[in-house]
Write a protein that binds this DNA or RNA. Structure first.
Lengths: 219, 219
DNA sequence: CCAAAAGTGTTAGTGATACACCCATGT
DNA sequence: ACATGGGTGTATCACTAACACTTTTGG
């Protein structure tokens, strides 16, 4: 890779980590999972879940491992976001981090209560605490990417359970985009994509007309 | 970043490199710059320009430095592509590479002739030689990204000189997309974007009607 | 019969596509 | 006058956006 065949001495290599922006829509609001740091630097501050990549695993495996270590859950939709490597992004050492974003249906995930080992919490994306490192920037970038991917892919369905109503789907879109969408246009567009299977079931909740359930069919 | 505060010993860190897919449109064809390897592994095989990231520089700086070392030119449009870190992508050691793609107007770049230090050449993207590492995959990914970015950004102009005709612009689009475009529709669309400044000059070349020159105005 | 959310159609505007001929120049 | 690439307009279609009322249910 380098024309002189120069290979940096091991002590001149950065450490490589993965950090994951795990999104979920909870009560119609977009949330991010944060972890409270118990080790320096930035002890006691909130940060993204993540950790060092281990020898023998892929970056994606590292991201999934870290997520399941910190949440106790597995099976996330995961996608690489961007790699941040500015010197000085960690005040103590040279760390290059490969950021991922992940999506999960909040119904399918029950956070472990805070233990002496991990303390995790969901935060509204537009009401974040002060964050360690450059994690605020990473989240900002992830939100931007999620918003644009929402428009031309089917990632939105990763935030819903197997069966869902069109209104629930619309609420997910609204939560991510941060704006109201016209109901009729939204339904027309979704149904015309040919990716929804109408089911024979309805969701009856509360005291009004039951809503038809659908399933996502994949591309 | 890791809840136990575990930091891998230096010998358990991957090396981090950058690799760059430098594109240029030459004679109406999309080309990629390749470098012939002079050191193991894959000696004598063609590969992407790139090299190790050095302490104190950003990833982007590393990419620009490698490019200028290997081409003698600077001032490229550069954008991060994806990070590849599968164990085994380098047969000898654990290397995580941050791939970039770059764009340059071929008129503005005169490749150094092959020396005993560097041997570089342009290759048509759809006629590549056998490539070292996973570089074929990286190029494939870069082409895909470039094609889609072409549609909703102004990256295309990075492949043209300061002043250009609409036909030249169209040829760049056709080279990247690999298909013919309707002339009238293309011109209508470009002009309606409000990002082109018509100049009072024309380009007279050959024995036909001179073409109006334009300049890219930026967003 | 009331409250609450589900469900449904039409119109206007905008952007995409398809398509063929005249224009300006040098020789 | 001819060869060569430069330059232009119209009609159709698909998609987007704006907008309000009726339906079904449980209490």
């Amino acid at each position: 890779m380098n024309k002189e065949g120069f290979v940096p001495a091991v002590e001149d290599r950065p450490a490589v980590t993965v950090d994951i922006v795990l999104f979920s829509v909870i009560n119609d609001w977009l949330n991010v999972l944060l972890v409270k740091r118990r080790i320096p630097p930035f002890v006691g501050m909130w940060a993204l879940p993540g950790g060092f990549v281990r020898r023998g695993e892929t970056l994606e495996e590292a991201a999934l491992r870290e997520l399941s270590e910190e949440t106790g859950v597995s099976g996330f939709y995961l996608e690489q976001l961007y790699t941040f490597g500015d010197p000085g992004r960690d005040p103590r050492m040279w760390i290059v981090t490969v950021a991922y974003y992940a999506l999960v249906n909040s119904k399918g995930i029950e956070l472990r209560p805070a233990t002496d080992v991990v303390d995790t919490a969901w935060y509204l994306v537009d009401n974040l605490p002060e964050l360690a490192f450059d994690h605020a920037r990473i989240i900002q970038y992830a939100v931007k990417r999620l918003r644009s991917k929402l428009e031309y892919t089917t990632v939105g369905f990763e935030l819903l359970p197997e069966k869902f109503t069109l209104t629930e789907l619309q609420r997910v879109y609204e939560a991510i985009l941060g704006q109201k969408i016209d109901k009729r246009n939204f339904r027309k567009k979704m149904l015309s994509r040919g990716i929804l299977q109408p089911l024979d079931e309805t969701k009856m909740e509360g005291v009004h007309r039951p809503a038809k359930l659908y399933r996502f069919l994949g591309v």
